[in-house]
Nucleic acid binder design. Sequence first.
DNA 1: ATCCTACAATAGACAAAGTCCAAATCAAGC
DNA 2: GCTTGATTTGGACTTTGTCTATTGTAGGAT
Lengths: 139, 139
Amino acid sequence: MSDLLERLRGRGWRMTAQRRVVAEVLDGDHVHLTADEVHARAVSKLPEISRATVYNTLGEMVTLGEVIEVATDGRAKRYDPNAHRPHQHLVCGRCGAIRDVHPAGDPLADLPDTERFGFTISNVEVTYRGVCPSCATTA
Amino acid sequence: MSDLLERLRGRGWRMTAQRRVVAEVLDGDHVHLTADEVHARAVSKLPEISRATVYNTLGEMVTLGEVIEVATDGRAKRYDPNAHRPHQHLVCGRCGAIRDVHPAGDPLADLPDTERFGFTISNVEVTYRGVCPSCATTA
DNA sequence: ATCCTACAATAGACAAAGTCCAAATCAAGC
DNA sequence: GCTTGATTTGGACTTTGTCTATTGTAGGAT
Protein backbone atom coordinates (compact mmCIF):
# COMPACT_ATOMS: atom_id res chain seq x y z
CA MET A 1 0.00 0.00 0.00
CA SER A 2 2.29 2.67 1.25
CA ASP A 3 4.38 2.92 -1.88
CA LEU A 4 5.09 6.55 -1.27
CA LEU A 5 6.63 5.89 2.14
CA GLU A 6 8.74 3.08 0.71
CA ARG A 7 10.04 5.23 -2.11
CA LEU A 8 10.97 8.02 0.24
CA ARG A 9 12.73 5.66 2.65
CA GLY A 10 14.63 4.17 -0.26
CA ARG A 11 16.04 7.56 -1.10
CA GLY A 12 17.72 7.85 2.27
CA TRP A 13 15.20 10.35 3.50
CA ARG A 14 15.65 10.93 7.19
CA MET A 15 12.56 9.45 8.75
CA THR A 16 10.60 11.21 11.47
CA ALA A 17 7.17 10.64 12.93
CA GLN A 18 5.93 13.80 11.19
CA ARG A 19 7.16 12.80 7.77
CA ARG A 20 5.78 9.31 8.12
CA VAL A 21 2.36 10.66 9.01
CA VAL A 22 2.33 13.11 6.10
CA ALA A 23 3.30 10.37 3.67
CA GLU A 24 0.66 8.01 5.05
CA VAL A 25 -2.07 10.63 4.84
CA LEU A 26 -1.19 11.54 1.29
CA ASP A 27 -0.76 8.08 -0.17
CA GLY A 28 -3.36 6.50 -2.45
CA ASP A 29 -5.15 6.86 -5.78
CA HIS A 30 -7.25 9.85 -6.77
CA VAL A 31 -5.87 11.69 -3.76
CA HIS A 32 -5.62 15.45 -4.20
CA LEU A 33 -5.54 17.09 -0.80
CA THR A 34 -4.70 20.69 0.01
CA ALA A 35 -1.93 21.39 2.49
CA ASP A 36 -4.51 22.25 5.12
CA GLU A 37 -6.41 19.04 4.55
CA VAL A 38 -3.19 17.11 4.90
CA HIS A 39 -2.49 18.99 8.09
CA ALA A 40 -5.96 18.30 9.49
CA ARG A 41 -5.61 14.57 8.87
CA ALA A 42 -2.05 14.49 10.13
CA VAL A 43 -3.10 16.17 13.36
CA SER A 44 -5.57 13.39 14.06
CA LYS A 45 -2.70 10.91 14.00
CA LEU A 46 -0.04 13.11 15.58
CA PRO A 47 -1.69 16.00 17.43
CA GLU A 48 1.40 18.13 17.92
CA ILE A 49 2.45 18.34 14.26
CA SER A 50 2.71 21.93 13.06
CA ARG A 51 1.48 23.52 9.89
CA ALA A 52 4.98 24.64 8.97
CA THR A 53 6.19 21.04 9.03
CA VAL A 54 3.41 19.92 6.75
CA TYR A 55 4.31 22.65 4.28
CA ASN A 56 8.03 21.81 4.52
CA THR A 57 7.42 18.12 4.06
CA LEU A 58 5.10 18.52 1.11
CA GLY A 59 7.61 20.88 -0.49
CA GLU A 60 10.40 18.35 -0.07
CA MET A 61 8.34 15.55 -1.54
CA VAL A 62 7.63 17.76 -4.54
CA THR A 63 11.34 18.58 -4.91
CA LEU A 64 12.17 14.89 -4.76
CA GLY A 65 9.68 14.34 -7.55
CA GLU A 66 7.61 11.90 -5.50
CA VAL A 67 4.58 14.16 -5.31
CA ILE A 68 3.07 16.53 -7.86
CA GLU A 69 1.66 19.93 -7.07
CA VAL A 70 -1.54 20.76 -8.93
CA ALA A 71 -3.22 24.15 -9.11
CA THR A 72 -6.70 23.27 -10.30
CA ASP A 73 -8.60 26.28 -9.07
CA GLY A 74 -6.33 29.16 -8.19
CA ARG A 75 -7.04 28.64 -4.52
CA ALA A 76 -4.99 26.25 -2.45
CA LYS A 77 -2.48 24.02 -4.21
CA ARG A 78 -3.28 20.32 -4.11
CA TYR A 79 -0.84 17.47 -3.73
CA ASP A 80 -0.97 14.35 -5.86
CA PRO A 81 1.12 11.39 -4.68
CA ASN A 82 0.72 9.54 -7.96
CA ALA A 83 3.86 11.06 -9.49
CA HIS A 84 5.12 7.94 -11.24
CA ARG A 85 2.06 7.21 -13.38
CA PRO A 86 1.73 9.99 -15.90
CA HIS A 87 -1.83 11.22 -15.86
CA GLN A 88 -4.02 14.26 -16.26
CA HIS A 89 -6.91 15.66 -14.26
CA LEU A 90 -10.66 15.91 -14.63
CA VAL A 91 -12.20 18.55 -12.38
CA CYS A 92 -15.82 19.21 -11.44
CA GLY A 93 -16.48 22.94 -11.52
CA ARG A 94 -19.30 22.66 -8.99
CA CYS A 95 -18.02 20.50 -6.15
CA GLY A 96 -14.32 20.52 -6.98
CA ALA A 97 -14.02 16.74 -7.22
CA ILE A 98 -10.89 15.61 -9.05
CA ARG A 99 -10.25 12.35 -10.92
CA ASP A 100 -7.06 11.12 -12.49
CA VAL A 101 -7.50 10.40 -16.18
CA HIS A 102 -5.33 8.94 -18.92
CA PRO A 103 -5.93 10.54 -22.31
CA ALA A 104 -4.67 8.91 -25.48
CA GLY A 105 -2.14 10.73 -27.61
CA ASP A 106 0.74 12.99 -26.74
CA PRO A 107 -0.12 16.67 -26.34
CA LEU A 108 3.55 17.58 -26.63
CA ALA A 109 3.61 16.27 -30.18
CA ASP A 110 0.70 18.58 -30.95
CA LEU A 111 2.75 21.71 -30.38
CA PRO A 112 4.61 22.66 -33.56
CA ASP A 113 8.12 24.07 -33.32
CA THR A 114 6.87 27.41 -34.56
CA GLU A 115 4.68 27.62 -31.48
CA ARG A 116 7.44 26.85 -28.99
CA PHE A 117 9.14 30.25 -28.97
CA GLY A 118 12.49 28.62 -28.29
CA PHE A 119 11.33 27.13 -24.99
CA THR A 120 12.69 23.80 -23.79
CA ILE A 121 9.48 22.08 -22.81
CA SER A 122 9.68 19.57 -19.99
CA ASN A 123 6.11 18.63 -19.32
CA VAL A 124 2.50 19.18 -20.21
CA GLU A 125 -0.45 19.48 -17.90
CA VAL A 126 -3.95 18.89 -19.18
CA THR A 127 -6.99 19.77 -17.11
CA TYR A 128 -10.44 18.74 -18.28
CA ARG A 129 -13.21 20.79 -16.69
CA GLY A 130 -16.85 19.95 -16.45
CA VAL A 131 -19.60 18.79 -14.15
CA CYS A 132 -19.59 15.44 -12.38
CA PRO A 133 -22.59 13.09 -12.53
CA SER A 134 -23.73 13.74 -8.99
CA CYS A 135 -23.61 17.52 -9.38
CA ALA A 136 -25.39 17.22 -12.73
CA THR A 137 -28.47 15.58 -11.17
CA THR A 138 -28.60 18.20 -8.39
CA ALA A 139 -29.61 20.70 -11.10
CA MET B 1 -6.77 48.11 -30.69
CA SER B 2 -9.08 48.11 -27.76
CA ASP B 3 -11.24 45.21 -28.77
CA LEU B 4 -11.92 44.33 -25.19
CA LEU B 5 -13.35 47.74 -24.38
CA GLU B 6 -15.50 47.65 -27.52
CA ARG B 7 -16.86 44.24 -26.72
CA LEU B 8 -17.76 45.29 -23.20
CA ARG B 9 -19.44 48.46 -24.33
CA GLY B 10 -21.40 46.48 -26.89
CA ARG B 11 -22.86 44.38 -24.13
CA GLY B 12 -24.45 47.37 -22.46
CA TRP B 13 -21.89 47.38 -19.72
CA ARG B 14 -22.22 50.51 -17.65
CA MET B 15 -19.06 52.45 -18.43
CA THR B 16 -17.05 54.18 -15.74
CA ALA B 17 -13.57 55.65 -15.67
CA GLN B 18 -12.39 52.75 -13.52
CA ARG B 19 -13.74 50.06 -15.80
CA ARG B 20 -12.32 51.75 -18.84
CA VAL B 21 -8.87 51.91 -17.28
CA VAL B 22 -8.94 48.26 -16.24
CA ALA B 23 -9.99 47.20 -19.71
CA GLU B 24 -7.29 49.32 -21.32
CA VAL B 25 -4.58 47.98 -19.06
CA LEU B 26 -5.59 44.40 -19.68
CA ASP B 27 -6.06 44.52 -23.42
CA GLY B 28 -3.54 43.02 -25.83
CA ASP B 29 -1.86 39.79 -26.88
CA HIS B 30 0.19 37.59 -24.60
CA VAL B 31 -1.10 39.60 -21.66
CA HIS B 32 -1.38 37.64 -18.42
CA LEU B 33 -1.34 40.06 -15.53
CA THR B 34 -2.18 39.34 -11.91
CA ALA B 35 -4.88 41.40 -10.23
CA ASP B 36 -2.20 43.36 -8.38
CA GLU B 37 -0.30 44.09 -11.57
CA VAL B 38 -3.49 45.32 -13.15
CA HIS B 39 -4.08 47.48 -10.11
CA ALA B 40 -0.57 48.92 -10.21
CA ARG B 41 -0.92 49.91 -13.86
CA ALA B 42 -4.43 51.19 -13.38
CA VAL B 43 -3.27 53.42 -10.52
CA SER B 44 -0.77 55.10 -12.79
CA LYS B 45 -3.63 56.16 -15.05
CA LEU B 46 -6.23 56.79 -12.39
CA PRO B 47 -4.55 57.22 -9.01
CA GLU B 48 -7.63 56.90 -6.85
CA ILE B 49 -8.80 53.52 -8.15
CA SER B 50 -9.12 50.96 -5.36
CA ARG B 51 -8.00 47.37 -5.21
CA ALA B 52 -11.55 46.21 -4.56
CA THR B 53 -12.73 47.79 -7.77
CA VAL B 54 -10.02 46.06 -9.76
CA TYR B 55 -11.03 42.72 -8.27
CA ASN B 56 -14.71 43.41 -8.90
CA THR B 57 -14.12 44.51 -12.46
CA LEU B 58 -11.90 41.58 -13.34
CA GLY B 59 -14.46 39.23 -11.80
CA GLU B 60 -17.23 40.74 -13.90
CA MET B 61 -15.22 40.49 -17.08
CA VAL B 62 -14.64 36.83 -16.33
CA THR B 63 -18.35 36.28 -15.69
CA LEU B 64 -19.17 37.96 -18.98
CA GLY B 65 -16.78 35.56 -20.66
CA GLU B 66 -14.64 38.38 -22.06
CA VAL B 67 -11.60 37.51 -19.96
CA ILE B 68 -10.19 34.17 -18.87
CA GLU B 69 -8.75 33.40 -15.47
CA VAL B 70 -5.63 31.25 -15.54
CA ALA B 71 -3.97 29.59 -12.56
CA THR B 72 -0.53 28.78 -13.87
CA ASP B 73 1.41 28.61 -10.66
CA GLY B 74 -0.80 28.27 -7.65
CA ARG B 75 0.04 31.82 -6.66
CA ALA B 76 -2.00 34.75 -7.89
CA LYS B 77 -4.54 34.18 -10.62
CA ARG B 78 -3.73 35.79 -13.93
CA TYR B 79 -6.15 37.39 -16.36
CA ASP B 80 -6.08 36.75 -20.08
CA PRO B 81 -8.12 39.13 -22.28
CA ASN B 82 -7.81 36.87 -25.29
CA ALA B 83 -11.00 34.96 -24.52
CA HIS B 84 -12.32 34.67 -28.05
CA ARG B 85 -9.34 32.96 -29.65
CA PRO B 86 -9.07 29.48 -28.16
CA HIS B 87 -5.49 28.93 -27.08
CA GLN B 88 -3.30 27.25 -24.51
CA HIS B 89 -0.36 28.42 -22.44
CA LEU B 90 3.38 27.93 -22.40
CA VAL B 91 4.98 28.83 -19.07
CA CYS B 92 8.61 29.34 -18.09
CA GLY B 93 9.28 27.68 -14.76
CA ARG B 94 12.14 30.05 -13.96
CA CYS B 95 10.89 33.54 -14.70
CA GLY B 96 7.17 32.85 -15.01
CA ALA B 97 6.87 34.23 -18.54
CA ILE B 98 3.73 33.09 -20.32
CA ARG B 99 3.05 32.82 -24.04
CA ASP B 100 -0.18 31.95 -25.79
CA VAL B 101 0.18 28.91 -28.02
CA HIS B 102 -2.06 27.08 -30.47
CA PRO B 103 -1.50 23.34 -30.47
CA ALA B 104 -2.83 21.17 -33.27
CA GLY B 105 -5.39 18.52 -32.51
CA ASP B 106 -8.23 18.37 -30.05
CA PRO B 107 -7.32 17.19 -26.55
CA LEU B 108 -10.98 16.55 -25.80
CA ALA B 109 -11.10 13.89 -28.50
CA ASP B 110 -8.18 12.18 -26.77
CA LEU B 111 -10.19 11.38 -23.67
CA PRO B 112 -12.06 8.10 -24.15
CA ASP B 113 -15.55 7.70 -22.72
CA THR B 114 -14.27 5.15 -20.24
CA GLU B 115 -12.06 7.85 -18.76
CA ARG B 116 -14.80 10.43 -18.38
CA PHE B 117 -16.43 8.99 -15.26
CA GLY B 118 -19.80 10.32 -16.40
CA PHE B 119 -18.63 13.95 -16.34
CA THR B 120 -20.02 16.46 -18.82
CA ILE B 121 -16.83 18.08 -20.01
CA SER B 122 -17.04 21.69 -21.06
CA ASN B 123 -13.46 22.70 -21.69
CA VAL B 124 -9.86 21.64 -21.63
CA GLU B 125 -6.87 23.59 -20.44
CA VAL B 126 -3.40 22.63 -21.58
CA THR B 127 -0.31 24.09 -19.93
CA TYR B 128 3.11 23.44 -21.40
CA ARG B 129 5.92 23.96 -18.90
CA GLY B 130 9.57 24.48 -19.58
CA VAL B 131 12.35 27.02 -19.69
CA CYS B 132 12.36 30.06 -21.93
CA PRO B 133 15.35 30.89 -24.15
CA SER B 134 16.56 33.80 -22.07
CA CYS B 135 16.44 31.83 -18.80
CA ALA B 136 18.16 28.90 -20.50
CA THR B 137 21.26 30.94 -21.32
CA THR B 138 21.42 32.35 -17.79
CA ALA B 139 22.32 28.80 -16.68
C1' DA C 1 -30.24 70.82 -18.43
C1' DT C 2 -31.46 68.75 -14.09
C1' DC C 3 -33.04 65.16 -11.16
C1' DC C 4 -33.34 60.23 -9.60
C1' DT C 5 -32.02 55.93 -8.64
C1' DA C 6 -30.00 51.70 -9.25
C1' DC C 7 -25.62 50.36 -10.03
C1' DA C 8 -20.61 51.11 -9.10
C1' DA C 9 -16.54 52.58 -6.32
C1' DT C 10 -14.19 53.15 -2.02
C1' DA C 11 -11.54 52.22 2.33
C1' DG C 12 -10.50 49.27 5.37
C1' DA C 13 -11.39 45.20 8.14
C1' DC C 14 -11.14 40.44 7.60
C1' DA C 15 -9.86 35.71 5.88
C1' DA C 16 -7.20 32.15 3.61
C1' DA C 17 -2.91 30.28 2.05
C1' DG C 18 1.70 30.24 2.52
C1' DT C 19 6.58 31.79 4.01
C1' DC C 20 10.20 32.74 7.25
C1' DC C 21 12.95 32.60 11.38
C1' DA C 22 15.27 31.74 15.79
C1' DA C 23 15.07 28.45 19.24
C1' DA C 24 14.26 23.74 20.76
C1' DT C 25 14.31 18.89 19.56
C1' DC C 26 15.63 14.63 17.60
C1' DA C 27 17.41 10.64 14.18
C1' DA C 28 21.08 8.24 13.10
C1' DG C 29 25.95 7.36 12.80
C1' DC C 30 29.82 6.74 15.85
C1' DG D 1 24.83 7.12 24.96
C1' DC D 2 26.89 11.16 22.77
C1' DT D 3 27.23 14.47 19.04
C1' DT D 4 25.79 16.86 15.35
C1' DG D 5 23.52 18.45 11.64
C1' DA D 6 18.99 17.95 10.04
C1' DT D 7 14.19 18.65 11.49
C1' DT D 8 10.36 20.67 14.02
C1' DT D 9 7.97 24.28 16.21
C1' DG D 10 5.05 28.40 16.97
C1' DG D 11 4.24 32.65 15.85
C1' DA D 12 4.93 36.75 13.26
C1' DC D 13 4.55 38.21 8.74
C1' DT D 14 3.25 38.46 3.62
C1' DT D 15 0.40 37.86 -0.24
C1' DT D 16 -3.84 37.25 -2.34
C1' DG D 17 -8.47 37.79 -2.14
C1' DT D 18 -13.31 38.76 -0.05
C1' DC D 19 -16.83 41.44 2.28
C1' DT D 20 -19.42 45.42 3.93
C1' DA D 21 -21.21 49.84 4.90
C1' DT D 22 -20.92 54.17 2.93
C1' DT D 23 -20.37 57.46 -0.71
C1' DG D 24 -20.41 58.55 -5.55
C1' DT D 25 -22.12 58.56 -10.27
C1' DA D 26 -23.87 57.03 -15.17
C1' DG D 27 -27.49 57.38 -17.79
C1' DG D 28 -32.45 57.30 -18.41
C1' DA D 29 -36.60 60.10 -17.24
C1' DT D 30 -38.56 64.62 -17.10
